[in-house]
Design a protein around this nucleic acid. Structure first.
Lengths: 220, 220
DNA sequence: TTACGATCCGGACCGAGGTCCGTTTAAAGT
DNA sequence: ACTTTAAACGGACCTCGGTCCGGATCGTAA
């Protein structure tokens, strides 16, 4: 169905979000003990301060511990590892983006046709990435886990759903990962900082990419 | 020119390779002193052995040094850092792929139409990545340099050239990076090892992706 | 209030990557 | 052969991420 190119494929969003909601949005903090919660807050605050003062590279696990007047072990118990701590720092803006495309107003949120949402999503993600580029780079997990972490899966899952609606008979998973690749912080860093491309060009590139990928006429 | 969809855009390859040839293929070894060359060989041999015996994770700089009966400092002076050593281990197959698409027989090498070369390139790269997945993963530099290293630039440069021939009026650089993203070892690892996709599906995905990206009808 | 178990804390400890610098040595010049 | 010098060597040393475990603390049930 909907294999031609007229207006839009109806843009159904009945079962659009359900699968995603449980994927890591909320309810993942298991209610800490009082002292633990206090220390967590102090650690995040200390880390934030360190980022401002010495950049992401200055966020040493021990430095954070000291700055928060806390043992080093505590940092690891709370955040698992360094990338965990860094991702916690990015958590706020990440949740914000999630909320925007899961339940915010169109064109990002439900209500707009899929391709349009896709376009909006990319631009929003692009902007958010540029804003926190340094942290985002530093928070990148080791390659083997880069695609396994919950936030990443949530994003690519969402892109997958939009794609399924737009190009129903394609390998949506693969396409989604390809699109997500365009939003990789490392790539964005390379293009903007090393190649000097302006954000606008990246946005235009995304729009174009979505258009190409989304096209439904059969190849060859 | 060549903005419609007939056969192929003539597939000119006059100025096809020149820019690339100087980009890291050869002449990057500055003629070592005798002892240095000897140690380099011993180190590579030792590293290869360690990989076979304990996997990529077993390739510790000190372990390699010891196994080669060499000081630790020597390893670093020769290879810069760990990823340098690992990339040196991958160098042989990398050069092989380069040679294949730079001067090998079609469809990979010059002589075939661009899109066809593009398809062949992806499949070849895919297979090569799958073969050395573990090393390739371990050899991944820190995010900020992932797109800066010479081999990577050579590959994306080549894809860019093929794309320019296939879709002359697109932002070929961005498209090339997008396609290269599909070949990212981390992604391939995720899809094959964690999602259980067979190589064939990835290849089909690449073919499809090339077809979509390569389409030259104007969007909307 | 007391007692108790689960949770948390802290910092000593470890391994690995990376740096430094005094010493050695290959190879070009005399 | 002898000097010279730039390159290579080696391993002590530093930093930092991550682990471990004995002891302190919180929350709760009696």
């Amino acid at each position: 169905m909907s294999a031609s190119l007229p207006p839009f494929p109806k843009h159904q969003e009945p079962t659009d979000e359900p699968v995603l909601l449980e994927l890591g949005s909320a309810a993942d903090e298991p209610c800490l003990r009082a002292d633990a919660a206090r220390n967590r807050a102090r650690l995040l605050e200390a880390a934030t301060l360190l980022v401002e003062k010495h950049g992401a590279a200055g966020v040493t696990m021990e430095a954070v511990a000291v700055a928060a007047s806390v043992g080093k072990g505590t940092v690891f118990r709370r955040f698992g590892d360094r990338t965990g701590l860094l991702m916690a720092l990015l958590d706020h803006s990440a949740k914000q983006l999630q909320a925007a495309f899961l339940s915010g107003p169109p064109p990002l949120g439900p209500g707009a046709p899929p391709v349009e949402r896709l376009r909006a999503f990319g631009c929003a993600a692009l902007r958010q990435a540029v804003d926190h580029l340094e942290l985002q780079l530093a928070a990148q997990p080791e390659p083997a886990r880069r695609y396994s972490n919950p936030p990443q899966r949530l994003l690519s899952g969402h892109v997958g759903l939009l794609l399924r609606a737009a190009v129903p008979d394609a390998d949506v998973t693969l396409l989604a990962q390809t699109l997500m690749g365009y939003l990789d912080p490392a790539l964005i860093h390379h293009l903007t900082k090393e190649c000097g491309m302006p954000l606008e060009r990246l946005e235009a590139g995304w729009i174009d990419l979505v258009a190409r990928v989304t096209r439904t006429e059969l190849p060859q």
